[in-house]
Amino acid sequence: MSDFLSVNIPKFTSVFSAIGMFFIVLAVLFAIAGRANGKKARPIALVIFLAPALILLLAGLIIPAIRTFLFSFMNPDSNAWVGFDNYKWMTEDPNVKSIMVNTILWILVVPIFTAALGLLLAIMLDRIKHESIPKSLLFMPMAISFVGASIIFKFVYEYSEPGEAQIGLLSSIVDFLGGTPKDWMLSKPLNTFLLMIIYVWTQMGFGMVILSAAIKAVPADIVEASALDGASGWRLFRNITFPMIKGTFIVVLATGVVGALKVFDIVRTMTGGNFSTNVLANEMYSQVFVQFDQGKGSALAIVLFLLVTPILIYNIRSLRMERSHS
């Protein structure tokens, strides 16, 4: 116990002194800058309020992104130019081909399932009594880390040799239905889809909750009016409700695409990218921190960035429209 204290008390003092220092610096800055009067007051306030964020963004995101772009044309140690070699490697290496195929599968399958399932449940939740209990249980996995979720599903996908007890739920169900359980994580291409289930399991609640809010926000009189006009069931949904929540549905899809593209934790924890389950984000990490090749890693990061740019442009466009309307 005393060992524990001697190790951990310094940790906590470092936290509290860091937080304390942070607020003291802020308070001093506010006090000094707050005394400025007249013409200089506004620019000084602007600098104090905005500069910390801008400096951190510049040092932490913008400059590093530019350097990553440059590194992608350099050798593993980033000290000599190699032209397009790293990109050429991507088009030639058979492993990278399988990684690309998997990544594309992820961004096609995962967002559609997450959004469709979320929408279906959101519609149904609107119809039932006591919706808060199922809603929070369906939403709960969002609070669990991908690593935690992976371990939860490691037990679901567990496989034992024939003759031993199957302690995995999936193996037991297959066994019960008369099938033969197998080592699921080794069976391609099924394993990639089993990993996707973990992702959908954690993220479906996100789509469900925001779509549910959007459905509730559809004005009642519009629904009432079209119901009086004889619209019902599917037609009412297709012509009235869905167009009004379409924006939210696209947000859910786009979030799914970005999330699926960056999926790293699940693949790393479940298979380490082996057995043909590798994806871009995991390969990027492996290239940099296992192979120590910053060039290839950077080039993979650039591909990741290029894949999100369509969504980036779409987001900026819709924010522009939204702002010009208000």
């Binding site: 964020a53 963004l57 995101l61 350097r67 590194f71 984000a281 890693g297 950077s298 993979l300 980036l312």
Partner: peptide, 16 residues
């Protein structure tokens, strides 16, 4: 800043 939201972390890890 809005646009930076979805830029993958991977873009800055190595230089940082």
């Amino acid at each position: 800043i809005f646009a930076l939201q979805i830029v993958p972390l991977q873009m800055s890890l190595i230089p940082l």
